[in-house]
Computed example of a mutant assay.
Amino acid sequence: MLPLVLSSSWRRIIYRGAPLVSPCSPVLFSPPEVMRSSPRSRTSVEQRDPTQLRILTNMAFWQSDTWTSSTRSIYPVENRCDPRFVSPILEAVRLFRRRREFDVVLTMGPRTSLYYGIMCAVAGVESRQIMCEVFLAPPRRHPSWRIKTALYRLAARRSLGILTNSSLEVESVIRRCGISRERVTYVPMHTNIRRPHLEERDEEFVLSAGRTWRDYPLLLEALRRLSVPAVIICGRRDLCRISVPDNVTVLREVNRDLYLDFLGRCRLVALPLLPVERATGQVVVLEAMALGKPVVATRVSGTVDLVVDARTGYLVPPGDAAALAAAIGSLAGAPGQAAEMGRRALERVLAEFTIEKHARRKLDAIMGLYRRRRAAPSRASA
């Protein structure tokens, strides 16, 4: 753990004697004496009816009426489309400037969460922060990783709590951020398919897609053992120096419409992921399930909460090419079994992973963390 000191006189964060924020540097917010909430305003927040919780966020979750009617975003959501997003530092500044009007500030994204939390720490004010998607990069010995981890711990300890996208992330967040279990809540992801339905098209090929922490070399090794055609939709730099077998087509940086067309036509989705603490692959898994496609994936943080093994797809051990090939082959050559698993996957999405279900769960989780803070307010400002 790095020596991290918060100076009470200058409100500086100091690492090994070198100030990261100098008192002579230009600041993005007013001095702590001006911005700190008065005891009167703080009391009014504590005594407010919790059913009327005021939530400020940088999320632009316009797809959910439940969410937009219960929160206030720094982005316009009334247009029902994705806005033009600003940089994480500007998001943090906007949240910081408006924080006193709200009971909770929900920060989405690791950088925005970190910047906002550190702004509040430097200014010496209560953050009222609930963090989503915290820093869970693999450990490294590089000083930058150690500094970032120390800063995240500082922001997390001053926050109301953290929301995770995977049940397996809970223990990692507790250990990495140094907070208690009651301040970490798992909220399942949602599908981005607004109207989940059973896609009737069924062509005999396997689809794999995405960029973050994908183990495409493992997938290619598995596909070399099979004759089934496969399409991989990946990033510009993926699979550039790897020999690709003849039964595999690689497409890079395709638009969403083309990706959804392939997703609707494929027989199954294969998603090999690296065994990291951070949950990845959930977007593709849930979109496939929402169109009635079975998923074959490695058993990691991003898949264990979504895929029911041998019912909506298969989960195989990370790094096991033989097991991955066997699972893919069993569904690629059995359209009836694949279709049945796909129907179960769609039923699971409709029951557990719709947009409105996610919105209600997230609002309930925010309320739970806020109430625990009211019961022990010192934990949020320690």
Rank of each mutant, 00 (worst) to 15 (best):
E204F: 02
P196M: 04
A380C: 12
T212C: 08
D257G: 01
T71S: 11
R267M: 00
S30H: 08
A376C: 07
A322H: 12
G264T: 03
D238C: 03
S87G: 11
S243D: 12
T280E: 13
G329A: 07
G292S: 01
R241K: 08
P39M: 02
C177E: 12
M108F: 15
A288Y: 09
T303S: 09
V173A: 10
P275W: 06
R241I: 00
R176H: 14
C177S: 09
T191S: 15
A334M: 01
L114P: 08
P32Y: 06
G161H: 10
P272V: 06
V77M: 15
R379V: 09
S41N: 11
I174S: 13
A345G: 14
N79A: 11
E33T: 11
R224C: 11
S167N: 03
F102W: 02
A332K: 04
K362A: 01
G336M: 02
V105G: 06
T354A: 01
Y186E: 01
A334E: 13
S30F: 10
K148E: 15
A121Q: 10
R111Q: 14
P229D: 05
L369Y: 08
D246A: 13
V134N: 12
E253K: 10
R194S: 15
D261K: 15
R100M: 06
V307A: 01
R12F: 04
E200Y: 01
G17P: 04
L198Q: 14
N192D: 09
R343W: 14
E287D: 12
S73G: 01
R97Y: 07
L28E: 04
T112K: 07
R241H: 13
L95T: 03
S69W: 11
E46Y: 15
L6S: 10
D238K: 02
F29P: 05
Q282W: 13
P275Y: 08
